[in-house]
Amino acid sequence: MDSKKTLTRADIANAIVSEFKVSKFNATEIIEDVLEEIAAALKEGESVKISGFGTFSVRQKKERMGRNPKTMQEAVISSRKSLTFRASPILKKIVNSKKK
């Protein structure tokens, strides 16, 4: 897509290590805990709202007919929950603030 490096857990862990006296292992562990707590709330159907960032919410999707685009075969798509993220107005503004 572009040449800019993708940000991963390791980069976030480095940012934590540079601010706190913790090992990279511990930093990675706390990142995992943050993500797991968010997942746990979503699992309960709760929305997770991080101010200045955005809101994660779970939507219930109904069962519907779909088609395998490769084989053109029709199949029932079972009802499921989907996760959506709505960026906060602040975040939308931030991504538009840079001259690229």
């Binding site: 940000l7 976030i12 601010e19 991080i50 960032f53 991504v95």
Partner: peptide, 18 residues
């Protein structure tokens, strides 16, 4: 730091993969 790292990367048009 976790949130801001994501925000900063998005600002720089970088992808974040967790």
């Amino acid at each position: 730091i976790v949130i801001n790292s994501i925000v900063d990367a998005l600002r720089e048009d970088r992808r974040i993969e967790l």
